[in-house]
Amino acid sequence: MSLKFSVLASGSTGNAIYIETPSQRLLVDAGLSGKKIEKLAGEISLDLHSLDGILVSHEHSDHIKGAGILARRYSLPLYANEKTWQAMETLIGAVPEEQKFLWANEKLQTFGDMDIESFSVSHDAADPMFFSFMYEGKKLTILTDTGYVSERMLGAAEEADVLIFESNHDVGMLRMGRYPWNVKRRILGDEGHVSNEDAGMALADIVRRKKADVYLAHLSKDNNMKDLARMTVQQTLEMEGVAAGEDYRLFDTDPDRPTVLREV
């Protein structure tokens, strides 16, 4: 009787996260091809026929690429807020009306045996949001795709046992990299993505209050590396007086390999 999860894929090439309780099985985003998500699900022995729905955070391709395909193939309910539905409807193909549901931003709802809170993030999408999942005193928060971490976001992540948290880029790599300046400016802006250093600063505010397992997520393929992200976040946390092992544990995610299905 527990809350379980696996980050099926995370990165600039596609994102999908699996959440499970005794009575509910949900996918958060489906940003890879249907075939790829099926393969990743199989690696954790997940039968997609058993899913109860897909929650969509926002309409960018790396979060919705397979959403319509999976909804049609497995007759799955698809949940998104109104502005996200308007932005993604023509991108995911026709979905039967009876499978389309609104999930308002900034709202706490009960979904089976789970409470799920949606909260706004700062990203260049129509109305982006992420989620905290709560079951039997355990909490998991997903927070990626934001240009900065606000007090509201920190509040949504407070008391989480597991954080799936954006550590998108190394600022030096991004500034020196091959991206055109307008793309660099977007990533560095308030509606872009959180850097390794900023992830560490935000995490310090959360994990000093309660120990958590932190999964560094949505790493840029071109402007980050797992070892660098982990090292920078850990060094930043240490500078803030937060100790590895005592206050938090760090874990990696991958763009094409799921994390082990584990209990919160």
Results as ranks from 00 to 15, higher is better:
Ala156Cys: 12
Thr141Lys: 12
Asp170Glu: 01
Gly189Phe: 00
Met201Cys: 05
Val194Arg: 03
Asn168Ser: 02
Arg152Trp: 07
Ile187Phe: 02
Ala125Tyr: 10
Phe133Cys: 06
Glu151Ala: 14
Asp213Tyr: 09
Met176Gly: 00
Asp145Phe: 02
Asp205Pro: 02
Arg185Gly: 00
Gly189Lys: 06
Arg185Ala: 03
Met176Thr: 04
Lys139Ile: 06
Phe130Gly: 06
Leu163Asn: 04
Lys139Val: 10
Glu159Gln: 15
Ile187Cys: 04
Pro180Thr: 05
Glu191Arg: 04
Leu140Asn: 13
Ala212Lys: 14
Lys139Thr: 12
Glu136Lys: 15
Glu158Arg: 15
Lys210Glu: 03
Ala126Leu: 04
Gly189Trp: 02
Ile164Gly: 00
Asp190Ile: 01
Glu166Gly: 07
Asn196Gln: 15
Leu154Ala: 11
Asp127Gln: 08
Thr146Asp: 09
Arg209Met: 14
His123Asn: 12
Tyr179Met: 04
Thr144Asp: 09
Pro180Leu: 13
Gly177Pro: 03
Gly200Tyr: 03
Ala156Phe: 14
Tyr179Leu: 15
Arg209Gln: 14
Arg208Gln: 13
Lys184Tyr: 01
Asp213Phe: 13
Arg152Glu: 08
Asp190Gln: 01
Ile187Gly: 02
Glu166Val: 04
Phe131Ile: 07
Tyr135Phe: 15
Leu203Arg: 13
Phe130Trp: 15
Glu191Val: 09
Asp205Ala: 13
Val207Lys: 13
Gly137Leu: 09
Trp181Thr: 05
Glu159Val: 05
Asp213Asn: 13
Arg186Trp: 07
Ala156Asp: 06
Arg152Met: 09
Glu197Pro: 08
Ser150Glu: 06
His169Pro: 01
Ile206Asn: 08
Gly189Ser: 14
Asp170Leu: 01
Ile142Phe: 04
Ala204Lys: 08
Ala126Ser: 14
Glu197Thr: 14
Tyr135Gln: 12
Ala212Ile: 12
Ala199Ser: 10
Tyr179Asp: 06
Ala125Thr: 12
Gly189Glu: 07
Leu174Ser: 01
Phe133Ala: 08
Arg186His: 09
Leu143Cys: 14
Leu203Asp: 05
Lys138Asp: 06
Phe131Gln: 10
Pro128Thr: 07
Trp181Gln: 04
Asp190Pro: 02
Leu203Pro: 12
Gly189Asp: 01
Arg186Glu: 09
Glu166Ala: 14
Gly147Ser: 08
Gly192Tyr: 00
Ala199Pro: 07
Arg209Thr: 06
Arg209Pro: 05
Asp190Cys: 02
Asp205Arg: 11
Val194Pro: 02
Val194Asn: 01
